[in-house]
């Protein structure tokens, strides 16, 4: 059973009108923003179920774009996110789409970066502003962003998990949950590490320096 804080009950502090359709949508966008690491040129949002049906009336569209700009769910600029994205010359569009057997409030966020790289994130807004990410670049995985989370993309080789956790150990960071995923044996893989401690950027910097680790991202969302 989840341990409710008083701020889960009196909270979240958010921009209306709906915790699942607005606050949760903003968080989904923000995870994509963190993984993209800037230079976003074009975003396509595929909206499933209730997201697809009601996104205009609930400001889901504005909240998703605000997330892509790096805003938190309680940022009053969410309302103006379209204009701000245009100023940054980020193209965005919304497509209602059946994404299959997923939660009714699900979005697939497809990003094109200025350097031509592409990435996609699939996630759902599961109530009260909470989210769950279930795919990155079509690889099935799972994390919520409720804990400070490090995502490491790496080659599937012996010892990389040990090297990564050794770095966390050096900084005195306790791992709450950790899972590993891969496409195929020996190919590209992901580690998802959820921690009890706040993570300073140096940790991620050190992890990135390890050979055969392609990248590391810090996801910390309000």
């Amino acid at each position: 059973m989840k341990n409710y804080s008083m701020f889960d009950v009196i909270g979240p502090n958010m921009i209306g009108p709906s915790s699942s359709h607005t606050a949760g949508a903003c968080r989904l966008g923000k995870v994509a923003y963190k993984i993209a690491e800037g230079d976003i040129k074009k975003v396509t949002f595929l909206l499933h179920g209730s997201f697809g049906k009601t996104y205009k009336g609930h400001g889901t569209d504005k909240a998703l774009v605000a997330g892509i700009l790096g805003f938190d769910p309680d940022d009053e600029q969410i309302k103006y996110s379209f204009q701000m994205a245009k100023e940054k010359e980020i193209l965005f569009s919304f497509v209602e789409e059946d994404l299959g057997e997923v939660h009714p409030n699900t979005a697939k966020i497809m990003i094109e970066k200025a350097d031509g790289k592409e990435l996609s994130i699939l996630g759902s807004s599961i109530g009260g502003g909470s989210i769950i990410i279930t795919e990155i670049n079509d690889l099935k995985l799972e994390f919520t962003g409720e804990y400070p989370t490090i995502i490491v993309s790496h080659k599937d080789r012996p010892g990389l998990i040990a090297k990564t956790t050794a770095i966390l150990c050096e900084y005195g960071i306790n791992i709450a949950f950790m899972r590993v995923y891969r496409y195929h044996k020996g190919q590209n893989a992901f580690m998802i590490i959820e921690t009890d401690n706040e993570i300073v950027p140096e940790v991620v910097g050190d992890i990135k320096k390890v050979a055969e680790i392609d990248n590391a991202y810090l996801i910390s969302i309000k």
């Binding site: 009950v9 009196i10 909270g11 979240p12 502090n13 958010m14 921009i15 209306g16 009108p17 709906s18 915790s19 607005t22 606050a23 400001g59 504005k62 309680d74 009053e76 969410i78 309302k79 009260g128 502003g129």
Partner: peptide, 14 residues
């Protein structure tokens, strides 16, 4: 809340 202003869900936005 309905105008996309800032509120505290207590317990929900609605």
């Amino acid at each position: 809340n309905a105008a996309m202003g800032k509120i505290v869900a207590a317990p929900t936005a609605g």
